[in-house]
Design a protein around this nucleic acid. Structure first.
Lengths: 90, 90, 90, 90
DNA sequence: CACTGGAAAATGCCGC
DNA sequence: GCGGCATTTTCCAGTG
């Protein structure tokens, strides 16, 4: 191509990078919207979204991880004299 | 019945909801990874990632700022009619 | 004052309102920074900030509120066959 | 010792940390209430709160946008030296 | 009284 | 490995 200079190639490369990123971010946004939609639908079916989110996040964690966190929380609460309710153990 | 506290109805439905969300989050994660990859590749080609990110974020903001300007115009137009005169305040 | 028109009074009032709000928001920001500082210091003393935050948030809630949420969470988890570990009850 | 899991040391310290944070959050809440009050008062004087909020938020953004512009300038200056030529990319 | 939008908090990522 | 920054998520007040 007659008009092609040796810098335009690199510029095209930059543009391409930016385009790819922007396109991927667009896709990500679409999926995020889809997720919101699922939550909304669930809500429409009577589910509590807050709890639902918590369930999802718990499923992400290794069981051991979760137990460790809880143990630590109890340590802190005990140090403050805020023992977790023993009622639930009954 | 506010929020679902009984388990008698459509337990499979909950599972399905969770599955859909997790699948979508998986896709989102994949795309995020792709984006990282593009950045990494760009870095390999000698681009400064920090700057690249700033370019992307500025491009993202520009349309938004145009909207902000329009909003501001609207605000000031409205403001012309929003200041109580002493008479009104009395 | 010779130059005072009857609209400038109201304008001064608007400015005053804006100033008051901005000043208060400034103060709020300062306090938020102070809070961050306390967390940072705590971290320096070996505390786990994440847990610390959870403790603070638990203290904000009514005990009954917390128990209710937990109960609901268990319902959802059960519906998914994710019984909370009985190990901690031992 | 990563993160504090023993309770033997300075339990009072934890309590003190929590107290400080809660006190600061209390102050923050007070200020937030003050802000609401100013808005309410303004409303009583006939101002449109929605517009008022927008004015505040625009004033907040303007300095930030100036900084963004400077950042953009910087970015483009840097970009002049950031594009790999074919030679470098080889 | 549920929804939407905006503020605040929390998390995770990146560079040093 | 830590601190700072950007993004994401959560919360809450205002609105219809």
């Amino acid at each position: 191509m007659a008009t092609k200079t040796n810098t335009s190639f690199a510029e095209g490369q930059l543009k391409q990078i930016v385009d790819r990123i922007e396109r991927l971010e667009e896709e990500k946004k679409t999926i995020a919207a889809d997720i919101k939609e699922v939550y909304a639908e669930a809500k429409g079916n009577g589910y509590d979204i807050k709890i639902l989110r918590k369930v999802i996040s718990l499923r992400k964690k290794e069981p051991g991880e979760r137990m460790e966190e809880e143990a630590m929380l109890e340590v802190y609460l005990s140090a403050l004299g805020m023992m977790p309710t023993e009622a639930e153990a009954a």
